[in-house]
């Protein structure tokens, strides 16, 4: 699977300052936490999807369609068993599923999808270097910011190595489809060991390459892309802050968007 999410376009979202986008994603996270009614979260998710469309990046989301569906299905199936509601739909040996708990499960599934989508919105429209830059300007220490960006950067590399390793072992007869559970562990070693070793080699090598180019984590350095906060950034942040305020008002004063009270 290709885990590179950056989608090189020149939309308004790509041009925003990375700090705005990081802040914006955090605001969307909080907005999501305001409600636990599926309808309200659907509205938020629709908003995020609309932003994806204007950023011409729906195809990035499409890459993760399986993950998104999986998160949703798990939520809908599991939550109802852990939450109690008033309107019981069916009971079985002490397990009960109510319509409230079912709706809550829906809401949580949609919330997870919104979380992932909002995070992906940042990755799809912001270069790795911009994320590093944004984090540093937000006051995150350089080594932490760099480590985070490196982790994002290396995910696709390791995924590629993983694909090659799987192919190499399958070529030797390794049968990944066989149903035998006892064979699991046996199948694990031929994949895990080469992946681990190639990851170790790679990171060690990368450290050599970075130092050879004069990189020191704690030394001052300039930046080729120097994002600027413009009026548009303030507009976006202002809009999201107002939305958050409105949502808080709806939840706390009007008690809208609540399926089960006392829960996020």
């Amino acid at each position: 699977m290709n885990l590179t999410f950056y989608n090189d376009e020149a939309t308004w979202l790509h041009r925003l300052d990375p700090r705005t986008k990081i802040g914006g994603v955090l605001l969307i996270f909080v907005i999501c936490l305001c409600f636990n009614h599926p309808l309200f979260i659907t509205v938020i998710l629709t908003g995020v999807l609309a932003i994806f469309t204007t950023a011409k990046s729906i195809k990035v989301l499409w890459k993760l369609r399986f993950l998104l569906v999986l998160l949703f299905v798990f939520s809908v199936v599991l939550w109802p068993f852990f939450i109690k509601g008033k309107t019981i739909l069916f009971q079985w040996h002490g397990l009960e599923v109510s319509s409230e708990s079912l709706l809550y499960g829906f809401a949580m599934g949609l919330r997870l999808m919104t979380f992932v989508s909002a995070g992906l919105l940042l990755l799809a429209t912001t270069k790795n270097e911009e994320i590093t830059n944004g984090l540093i300007r937000l006051g995150i220490p350089y080594p932490v910011a760099f480590a985070l960006a490196t982790a994002i950067r290396l995910a696709p590399t390791f995924a590629d190595a993983g694909t090659t390793i799987v192919q190499a072992q399958v070529s030797r007869g390794l049968d990944l489809d066989s149903k035998n559970i006892f064979g699991r562990f046996k199948r694990f070693a031929p994949l895990a060991i080469p992946i681990f070793i190639s990851a170790m080699r790679y990171t060690n090598f990368l450290a050599m390459a970075l130092e050879s180019k004069g990189f020191q984590p704690d030394a001052p350095r300039t930046s080729y892309y120097e994002p600027q906060i413009t009026g548009r950034d303030w507009l976006v942040l202002g809009f999201l802050t107002l939305t958050l305020a409105a949502c808080l008002y709806m939840r706390l004063s009007l008690h809208w968007g609540i399926i089960i009270s006392g829960r996020l």
Binding site: Y6, D8, K127, N128, E129, R153, Y202, F205, L206, A209, L210, K213, G214, F215, Q216, A219, P220, R221, T222, S223, Y224, Y225
Partner: peptide, 20 residues
């Protein structure tokens, strides 16, 4: 393995950024 950046110009800029 030594290419690290998102695009060509950023890769070329990396060493220069370190040189401030």
């Amino acid at each position: 393995a030594q290419l690290f950046s998102t695009n060509v110009e950023l890769e070329m800029a990396f060493g220069l950024e370190n040189q401030c």
